[in-house]
Structures are given as C-alpha cells and as structure tokens.
Amino acid sequence: MDVANRHRVRVTGHEDGPLLLLAHGFGCDQHMWRLVEPILARTCRLVLFDFPGAGGSPASGWSAERYSRLDGYAEDMAAICRELDLRDVVVVGHSVAAMIGVLAAGLEPDRVSGLVLVTPSPRYIDDEGYRGGFSRADIDELLESLESNYLGWSAAMAPVIMGNPERPELGQELTNSFCRMDPRIAQVFARATFLSDSRDDLATVAVPTLVLQCAQDAIAPPEVGAYVHEHIPGSRLVTLDATGHCPQLSAPEQTAAAILSFVGARP
C-alpha cells in the first residue's frame, strides 16, 4: 500500500498558500483539525493524514517494534513529506505529534521550514528539576488501565453505529469513529507517548517555531509549554485563553489565528 493510502493523506485548501502538514496526536485521527481546517484552508495549503490504525485507518505495515518509539512516527511524517514532495512545509503537530514533528524536522531539514507545536510535552513524567505533570506511578496506572480496561478502551474506540438526525452534517460513519483505535495499537502508541523523553531534541530545532499552549491543560500544563519555549532557541510562545488539551477544538478561531499569524498568512 502506498504512503498516501496508508495514511489516508488528504490535500486541501488554497493552492498557492503557505504549506501546512497537520499531524494528530494520541487519541483521535485527522478529524481533530476539523474546526480549524475551514479557517486555515482559506489561505493555506493543508496536508492532513492519519498515523496507522488511527480512526480506522489501515493498520497495514504497523508493527509494535516500529511504533514503540516516536522515531517510527517521525519516519512516517518524513515519508509523507518525500512522497508528496513537500517543500517549505510548516509542520503543525498536536500533543505528542508536536514532538514527533520536531523529530521529523530533523529527518527532513531541507523540507521542513517551520514548526507549530500545539500543547507539546517533551516528557510527561516528572524528573529532577523538571515537572511534566505526571509521576511514574501515574503513567504506570494509565498503561495498566489500558490493559485492564481493555474492553472499555476498545468499546470507546469502536465506532458507535447510530444515526445523528440532529446533525446530519456529521454523517453516520463519523460518530465516535474518529477516536477509534485498535487497543493493541493504542497501547503501543500510549507507551511510546507517555514514556517518551524528547527534552534533548528541543535544542536541535533549527527552524522558526511557535509553541501554542492552553491556559488550563491537564496533560501539558503551562509550565511544560514554557519549558519547550525556553529550550527551543528563538521560539515564540502563545498561551491561548482556552481549557483542555485540544485548543483546535475548544478554541478553533484563536488557534487558527495564531497559526496564520505565525506563517504570515492573512485570515
């Protein structure tokens, strides 16, 4: 299966606009960008994709070995950049995909010309002199819950087949399905995500970078965003007046405005 099909790559937006590669994190698929997509698409060229197994994307080519480290996901992004011959592309990564974007920029320095890190965290577990927001025991509990609440996670990740007469625009197939992932794949992704430590990679960033964080975020608290900003030379930090870990959903206008202002496109 070729790269475009494997990752359900979708290209949309303004043909001559700045090029953005939008990467979703652990949890849902490319639909995470739904509310910002129409705003960004007016002036930017957008490339959206899924990591293998996300939202019912094909899991062909998935292996626990490749995807147990963030580098495997970064290789995917690099492959998409090469396959579509993307040049001068700004990688917009949400959550763990922010750090995956940092790694991908290192793999394709001639193609990636900027980074937007949305609610990034280079390490979720607290360490000496570093507060990630979670203790090792917390993360062990999460991973254990993925194991013990296997059916809970898998039921949550299976699409709920139900019509949605009030909001037909969502369509039946969309209901719950975009947050679906085979629990075996989700476990490996969760492990790769929450046990990662990419702090040393921050200093390697050599492209203009925007860090976008929320004022209140239970997964990537503001001090983590500040840490990322401090450790990426010349980066910009924007704190959105938003709650939660997904500002592209809870505050789509603000999020899109910050991205557009960074890439120099007018809304």
Binding site: G27, D138, A156, L249
Partner: peptide, 26 residues
C-alpha cells in the same frame, strides 16, 4: 484516575466538542 483523565482529554473531550454527546465510556 490518571488513566481516566488522559482517556477523557484525548478521546472524550474531542468527541464532545465534535458530536455534542458521547455514550457509554468506561
């Protein structure tokens, strides 16, 4: 629990934002 909180932030909150409802999350 922490597992539940992460599950909520990464799955349920996005679904609520997009669908307006979620059902039967463990």
């Amino acid at each position: 629990t922490v597992g539940g909180r992460i599950h909520y932030e990464t799955h349920i909150a996005p679904l609520l934002a997009m669908q307006g409802s979620v059902g039967g999350f463990a």
